[in-house]
Amino acid sequence: MKHNIEHTIDPESLCVVGGMPRHDASALPFQLLQGSHHAAFLYWYTTYRLVPFDGRQHDPDPDPSFFGDEIGTWDGDTFVIDSVAFKEARTWADENANPHSDQLHTIERWTRPDAGHLHLELTIIDPKFYTEPIHYQRTWLIGKPTQIVHEYSCAEDNVDAPHLQPGPGPIGPDGQRGYDKVTPLPPPPDKDHPAVTSILN
């Protein structure tokens, strides 16, 4: 935790995939598309994950990844996603910069109790970093039918990357971390320093 706060830059701000379980702990909406054999989670940041639930088993020798090797199954009306084989470097477990190791194992239990709510019970098992499983739950509300996630080109003109410093920012009064302090903009254009465009006449 302290290492992440003081020595690592937020991977997502560098356009590195947030992965799991961070996306489950995100305050951003997401879109879920459920098919016959796969479920697709579409996230802001133009990131996605595909969860197969066609009866397959975990890859016996999976490549480590940010979302892990994910297998979905149905337990009654509960959609269970079991994920293993995560990367350890350049990833945070959540917005709080909590760490996770390559021994991370997540079990998501998704339910839709009614038309308007989606509920997650997440179990995070990481015997390398945590002494016991972490249980986390939350609920989402259905958006409007016309709403979808949109493209966000994170790596395009990421001029801030050289200026970023470690940590997720201080904890605000609402419990969320982040930066919201303000410094003034450069002075606006005036008659002595008019704004010009790059379009040639």
Binding site: D94, N96, R177
Partner: peptide, 24 residues
């Protein structure tokens, strides 16, 4: 099975969701 498809937005009653230890 229940169709989980949809555009899902966070509930305001779940905060701070950014910390996986929030329920500990």
């Amino acid at each position: 099975h229940p169709d989980l498809s949809g555009y899902w937005v966070p509930s305001k009653q779940d905060r701070p969701v950014g910390n996986i230890g929030k329920d500990l």
